[in-house]
Amino acid sequence: MAKKVDYNLLHVYLLIHKHRSLSLVAKQLGCTDSAVSKMLSKLREGFNDQLFVRHTSGLEPTALTEWLAPKIEIKLTALDAVIDEAIENAFETERHVVISLLPVDISLFGSVLYSQLSQFFPDVKFSLVSWAENTPDKIASKEVDFAVGPSLDNNSKLCYQTVMFDTSYNLVVPEKDIYTSWHDYLKYRLLRQLVPGWNIAKRPITEMLDKQKIPYYVDDLTDFDDISYANNIMLANKGDLPYGIGLFSHQIDKFKQNINSNVYIVNPSTFGEFKIQSKIEFCLYEYVGNRGNYFYDQVKSILQNTLNPKNK
């Protein structure tokens, strides 16, 4: 050969061999006759052979094409099958995908999420694990594939972080405890979600309340990671200092559906005398090398549709 053959043109080569007409090939490819003619010229140059000669009945293959075309067709068919299988199945066999969520989100959304993922990818093993302080590091080291949680100062270039949705922090109390002023809720002890690395080392919620000059009671904070247990404490306590549960907005509807519907939701930044809407960013964390991969994009889409309150 005078030059290396452009393998992208081999399918065109086989089509010309099949139809013996540049016009029919152009019609099938959705391009002009001239474009197919230029492709044939490149093939002739690459193979250093005419490949096809004009005849009254159409294009007739040369001796090289008669010998070569069937062999190329066999090889290309096998290669196409491998590529199609890879794209369609995205290497699903024996794949294990680990997703990290807040413990409460696992309780509220876990069964729905797991069901949808298993339905779309029956051959893939999925594991839902609790959010940890070093979750971004685990993504960078490929121990975790995806995580959804509050925005962190993530310095890893291997852990890609994008905002998935905005949420806010709310106080959940028994339905009977409805007041007209936020000050009436200051008597509540707060059962606070345990979010390692976010509300343990620092206090973003209290910082937000301080900034908006909203009073709060923090002398007795109790962390929890079991939402059913927290709900039982809230409903069972009848003392002078009752308990309320701190929940993010995207968790409220699922909490009402799955845990207890007889509750009242109070957002201190929009309640009574306070009208400043405060937003907390929840982010999707993923390994940078997975971005743009068809399989991982599908998993990410299911995650977004399940957790994002705007999709409800």
Results as ranks from 00 to 15, higher is better:
252 I>L: 15
113 L>R: 03
255 F>S: 10
76 L>D: 08
6 D>C: 00
273 E>H: 03
15 L>I: 01
235 L>C: 14
242 P>A: 14
252 I>K: 09
160 Y>G: 01
68 L>T: 04
14 L>Y: 06
298 Q>S: 15
48 N>G: 10
120 F>W: 04
299 V>I: 15
262 N>K: 14
118 S>N: 14
71 K>D: 08
131 W>P: 01
76 L>K: 01
253 D>L: 14
120 F>V: 04
3 K>V: 02
167 T>M: 14
254 K>D: 04
260 N>H: 10
292 G>K: 04
223 D>H: 07
251 Q>I: 03
251 Q>C: 13
137 D>F: 07
232 N>L: 14
116 Q>V: 00
5 V>K: 03
124 V>A: 01
217 Y>Q: 11
263 V>L: 10
279 K>D: 11
191 L>Y: 00
277 Q>G: 02
303 L>Q: 10
189 R>G: 10
36 V>D: 05
239 G>W: 03
96 H>R: 14
265 I>G: 06
296 Y>D: 02
133 E>F: 00
224 F>V: 01
110 G>E: 03
32 T>D: 09
58 G>P: 12
51 L>Q: 00
288 V>R: 06
245 I>Y: 06
247 L>W: 10
102 L>F: 02
198 W>D: 01
155 N>S: 13
71 K>I: 05
147 A>W: 08
48 N>T: 09
50 Q>M: 12
192 R>F: 06
185 Y>K: 09
275 K>E: 03
